[in-house]
Computed example of a mutant assay.
Amino acid sequence: MPIMLKMIDIFGSIRSLFKVQRVSEDTLIFRLHYRATVALLLASCLTLACKSLSGSPIHCEAAGSVDKIVLETFCWLHTTYSMVHAFNMSLGQAVPYPGVFNSKAVVHGHGPQPLVKQHKYYQWVIFALLFQAILFYTPRWLWKGWEGGKIHALMMDLDIGICSEVEKKQKKKLLLDYLWENLKYHNWWAYRYYLCEVLALINVIGQMFLMNRFFDGAFLTFGIDVLRFLESDQEDRVDPMIFVFPRMTKCTFYKYGVGGEVEKHDAVCILPLNVVNEKIYVFLWFWFLLLGALSFMTVVYRIVIIFSPRMRVYLLRLRFRLVRREAVETIVRRSKMGDWFLLYMLGENLDTVIYRDVMHDLANKLASRHHHSVPGIKGELQEA
């Protein structure tokens, strides 16, 4: 009972990943990595842990005088296996289950055999899911340190918009003074966030590759095999998930007999956890595909922003309609890409009317400085 209560507390702590944050320091796609995906991985890890604690993760049966607990412990530690040629035999006639066959040859469940498919992964699934969650949170951890609370500090409660005019005027002046004095000094700050987005993309691709290697290359054609299985007559085809997550496997156990000779016991094992593993990894595989595609488009989007000031103007106009077009063009022309990113993130957090006033005041100051320094010349949009 105390263990179950502890698990419930841990499940409750996962909800904090879904809490609506007052300050938005990143984008929606980035939050899918460190919130949705991390919560999904931790919930899967805890589900498997609860399943293991509430019942035995493996059940084995063998003929002869073999202690059941010893047999199950041995088969769990030294892995189980399936016979490759038995996957295509007729179920219920030639074999009792795909991959389970009465092997007369000497087969060691924990040794390499050309006709044997080893199943070693089930010991490591919980640890693998926990490690995956850590990797998905790493880019967020890096950005949280690099961002340093800059956006929250510059907000100064201006996201509420309900305050006295004197206080509002003072805070807007402080924000405007900071933007004016630190203009063109935010490139490195923005590029570090872009680096975190690239790391998030690399992480998704790398985890899909490792997942495929973890299950002996089965996931490369997994989606196609599943679709073919669903479209065809399911009685004539073997469920492709059985090849990756078999529910019944074999295990060979050796012990000394009463006469001192070595006895071989051919055991059949049921892996109930594979029913849960199957659902978890099928969902994760397609979720990673979607997340990888969205992350790739985000990286392409960032590249376009870096090399296209006109795109920055378009995006600011598209997102913040209250800001005049000439003000946006002036700011983008006189600033750099890092300043654009900071202004965009501030716009996501500040009150819309206050943000409009700050942008207009900043544009007027920039236009006035340029008018006094280079009279009569209209500047072009500056490349960051």
Rank of each mutant, 00 (worst) to 15 (best):
179 L>F: 12
186 H>Y: 02
203 N>H: 03
34 Y>Q: 00
132 Q>H: 03
244 V>N: 07
273 L>Y: 10
91 L>S: 07
219 F>G: 08
235 E>S: 14
91 L>A: 03
121 Y>M: 12
29 I>N: 04
60 C>N: 11
298 T>G: 01
53 L>P: 01
94 A>W: 15
305 I>Q: 12
24 S>E: 14
163 C>H: 08
314 Y>H: 15
235 E>G: 13
297 M>I: 10
314 Y>I: 11
23 V>R: 13
67 D>I: 14
48 L>V: 01
382 Q>F: 01
3 I>N: 15
55 G>S: 13
318 L>D: 04
69 I>W: 13
380 E>T: 15
215 F>R: 11
108 H>M: 13
276 V>R: 01
360 H>V: 04
212 N>A: 07
175 L>S: 00
174 L>R: 09
263 E>Q: 15
279 K>R: 12
85 H>A: 02
158 L>D: 01
204 V>C: 08
297 M>K: 05
89 M>I: 02
345 M>S: 08
329 E>L: 08
347 G>S: 05
246 P>L: 11
152 H>Q: 14
111 G>C: 14
85 H>F: 09
81 Y>F: 15
214 F>W: 14
122 Y>R: 09
364 N>F: 08
161 G>Q: 02
206 G>Q: 03
156 M>V: 07
100 V>Q: 07
292 G>A: 10
343 L>T: 02
174 L>T: 06
137 Y>F: 15
254 Y>S: 04
301 Y>Q: 02
141 W>T: 09
131 F>S: 04
291 L>A: 03
4 M>Q: 11
107 V>D: 07
382 Q>T: 04
361 D>V: 04
129 L>R: 01
325 R>E: 11
1 M>P: 12
235 E>P: 00
272 P>A: 07
288 F>N: 06
275 V>R: 11
25 E>L: 07
208 M>E: 02
202 I>R: 04
85 H>Y: 09
264 K>S: 12
101 F>W: 15
305 I>H: 04
222 F>L: 14
42 L>K: 05
96 P>Q: 13
210 L>F: 15
129 L>I: 00
114 P>A: 13
193 Y>E: 03
356 R>A: 06
149 G>E: 08
17 L>R: 01
228 R>G: 11
301 Y>M: 05
370 H>Y: 11
268 V>A: 08
291 L>N: 03
204 V>I: 09
317 R>P: 00
105 A>Q: 11
306 I>D: 00
305 I>G: 01
45 C>I: 00
47 T>K: 06
115 L>S: 14
119 H>V: 12
336 K>L: 07
346 L>G: 04
351 D>I: 02
240 P>H: 12
177 D>E: 08
171 K>V: 01
267 A>L: 12
103 S>Q: 11
348 E>W: 13
134 I>R: 00
329 E>N: 10
203 N>T: 10
275 V>A: 12
154 L>Y: 13
344 Y>R: 10
307 F>V: 10
233 D>W: 15
328 V>F: 00
234 Q>G: 05
139 P>Q: 11
375 P>T: 05
64 G>I: 11
293 A>R: 01
63 A>S: 14
137 Y>I: 08
247 R>P: 02
341 F>Y: 13
